[in-house]
Computed example of a mutant assay.
Amino acid sequence: MKTKTCCFSGHRELYPKKIPLLEKELHKIIADCIEKGYRRFLCGGAKGFDFLAAKTLLAHQNTYPEIQLEIVFPYHYLPSMWKEIAAKANSLTYLSETYYPGCFYARNRYMVSQSHGIIYYLEKETGGTAYTVRCAKNSSLALFPITLSSESEW
Score class of each variant (00 low, 15 high):
residue 32 D to K: 13
residue 32 D to M: 08
residue 33 C to E: 15
residue 34 I to Q: 04
residue 34 I to C: 08
residue 36 K to S: 13
residue 37 G to Q: 04
residue 37 G to W: 01
residue 37 G to C: 02
residue 40 R to A: 10
residue 40 R to D: 14
residue 43 C to G: 04
residue 44 G to H: 14
residue 44 G to L: 13
residue 45 G to E: 00
residue 46 A to E: 11
residue 46 A to L: 01
residue 46 A to H: 05
residue 46 A to R: 01
residue 47 K to W: 04
residue 47 K to F: 05
residue 47 K to C: 09
residue 48 G to Y: 05
residue 49 F to S: 04
residue 50 D to L: 10
residue 50 D to S: 09
residue 51 F to A: 11
residue 51 F to H: 15
residue 53 A to G: 13
residue 53 A to W: 05
residue 54 A to E: 00
residue 56 T to M: 03
residue 56 T to N: 11
residue 56 T to S: 15
residue 56 T to A: 11
residue 57 L to I: 04
residue 57 L to R: 14
residue 58 L to K: 08
residue 58 L to W: 04
residue 58 L to M: 11
residue 58 L to Q: 03
residue 60 H to I: 01
residue 61 Q to H: 15
residue 61 Q to F: 08
residue 61 Q to V: 07
residue 62 N to V: 15
residue 62 N to R: 12
residue 65 P to I: 00
residue 65 P to Q: 04
residue 65 P to M: 09
residue 65 P to E: 07
residue 66 E to L: 08
residue 66 E to S: 14
residue 67 I to K: 11
residue 67 I to V: 15
residue 67 I to N: 12
residue 68 Q to V: 07
residue 68 Q to S: 14
residue 68 Q to A: 12
residue 69 L to D: 04
residue 70 E to K: 09
residue 70 E to V: 10
residue 71 I to G: 00
residue 71 I to L: 05
residue 72 V to Y: 07
residue 73 F to C: 03
residue 73 F to E: 00
residue 75 Y to F: 15
residue 75 Y to S: 01
residue 77 Y to D: 15
residue 77 Y to A: 13
residue 77 Y to V: 15
residue 78 L to A: 09
residue 78 L to T: 08
residue 79 P to I: 01
residue 79 P to L: 01
residue 79 P to M: 01
residue 80 S to D: 11
residue 80 S to C: 09
residue 80 S to N: 11
residue 81 M to C: 12
residue 83 K to H: 13
residue 83 K to Q: 13
residue 84 E to V: 06
residue 85 I to Q: 02
residue 85 I to D: 01
residue 85 I to P: 00
residue 85 I to Y: 02
residue 86 A to F: 09
residue 87 A to C: 07
residue 88 K to C: 11
residue 88 K to F: 09
residue 88 K to Y: 06
residue 88 K to I: 00
residue 90 N to T: 01
residue 91 S to G: 13
residue 92 L to V: 06
residue 93 T to A: 02
residue 93 T to Y: 02
residue 94 Y to E: 03
residue 96 S to M: 02
residue 96 S to R: 14
residue 96 S to H: 15
residue 97 E to P: 03
residue 97 E to R: 08
residue 99 Y to S: 02
residue 100 Y to T: 09
residue 100 Y to N: 07
residue 100 Y to Q: 13
residue 101 P to V: 03
residue 101 P to D: 12
residue 101 P to E: 10
residue 101 P to H: 10
residue 102 G to V: 05
residue 103 C to K: 02
residue 103 C to Y: 03
residue 104 F to D: 08
residue 105 Y to S: 08
residue 105 Y to E: 06
residue 105 Y to V: 00
residue 105 Y to A: 09
residue 106 A to S: 11
residue 106 A to M: 08
residue 108 N to V: 08
residue 109 R to W: 08
residue 109 R to G: 05
residue 110 Y to N: 11
residue 111 M to F: 12
residue 112 V to E: 13
residue 112 V to T: 10
residue 112 V to L: 10
residue 114 Q to N: 01
residue 114 Q to S: 05
residue 114 Q to K: 15
residue 114 Q to H: 06
residue 115 S to C: 04
residue 115 S to F: 08
residue 116 H to T: 00
residue 116 H to G: 15
residue 117 G to L: 01
residue 117 G to Y: 02
residue 117 G to S: 15
residue 117 G to N: 03
residue 118 I to A: 12
residue 118 I to H: 08
residue 119 I to E: 10
residue 119 I to R: 00
residue 120 Y to H: 15
residue 120 Y to V: 09
residue 121 Y to N: 01
residue 121 Y to R: 04
residue 121 Y to H: 12
